[in-house]
């Protein structure tokens, strides 16, 4: 695999029971790039994202065809432990979902249980919270419940929680759709900062957001990858009419 590519999909099909949610997807994700997945509801972008860290395994009756290579290994090979994959490919969800624990324990939870980066937890907690630009707001209340934080703070806490595992890739499933504009701006700044060290793949409904923060953009429609290119190109001169219709708001 080329050095600047971190994930490669070869002819991936995905089924919920009998119905096919993704059709013959082949694409690559660049290392230390921000890739945005856009498209109307039900187009399969979230499904694709959750394929990358095997979160779809949790749903009964799903089936994957094709291969998804991460570090040259098919993450759906029978000898691969999905738990190991998820340690390297972190995820931030649509709705902030901190554990009903203290702020400190939210961050320390993963490293403590997995033994990954569990050396000096205090330093790790501080480091992760600084990375997600939450440290100054919470440094005096680390032992308070995370449920008392605002939505935007909770989401940055969830990002810090994922970062504490020191993943290679951060998957973000519409991370700002439940947040107000100020919190959204903070998260977008954060993504800009994080891409120096991480590969970020983000699903978003917000096209301005995709245009603002991503290097590459992939447009999905009813389970097909319609167009995939540099973000600049997609938003200025898309090759496919459907893409243009979607980004100009003619449908979706």
């Amino acid at each position: 695999m080329e050095t600047n590519i971190i994930i490669k999909l070869n002819n991936v099909n995905f089924y919920y029971g009998q119905s096919r949610a993704l059709t013959d997807i082949s694409m690559t994700f660049g290392k230390n790039k921000v890739t945005a997945l856009i498209g109307p509801s039900g187009c399969g972008k979230s499904t694709l994202l959750r394929l990358l860290n095997r979160m779809n395994d949790l749903i009964d009756g799903t089936r994957v065809e094709g291969e998804i290579l991460f570090e040259d290994k098919n993450i759906y090979a029978p000898d691969i432990d999905p738990v190991e994959i998820r340690r390297k490919i972190g995820m931030v969800f649509q709705k902030p979902n901190p554990f009903p624990k203290t702020i400190y324990n939210n961050i320390a939870y993963g490293p403590k249980l997995t033994g990954v980066n569990a050396g000096d937890l205090d330093t790790l907690v501080e480091q992760s919270l600084k990375q997600s630009v939450l440290w100054n707001e919470v440094k005096d209340i680390l032992n308070k419940s995370a449920m008392n934080l605002s939505g935007g703070q909770q989401q940055r806490l969830c990002i810090a929680r994922a970062l504490a595992m020191k993943p290679d890739i951060l998957l973000m499933d519409e991370p700002t759709s439940a947040l107000d504009p100020i919190s959204t701006a903070k998260i977008e700044d954060l993504i800009e900062e994080l891409k120096k060290d991480y590969t970020i793949i983000i699903v978003t409904h917000n096209m301005q957001q995709a245009a603002r923060i991503s290097d590459e953009t992939a447009f999905f429609y009813i389970g097909n990858l319609v167009e995939y290119n540099k973000t600049e190109k997609i938003f200025t001169k898309p090759d496919v009419k459907q893409t243009e219709d979607y980004i100009t708001g003619r449908f979706g």
Partner: peptide, 23 residues
């Protein structure tokens, strides 16, 4: 118990067994 708690824990690479017992 909200499904999102399970997802959050599993997405960190915590095993299902640990997720069940810790969360």
């Amino acid at each position: 118990v909200p499904q999102t708690f399970r997802e959050a824990s599993l997405s960190l690479g915590v095993s299902k067994w640990q997720t069940t017992f810790r969360i």
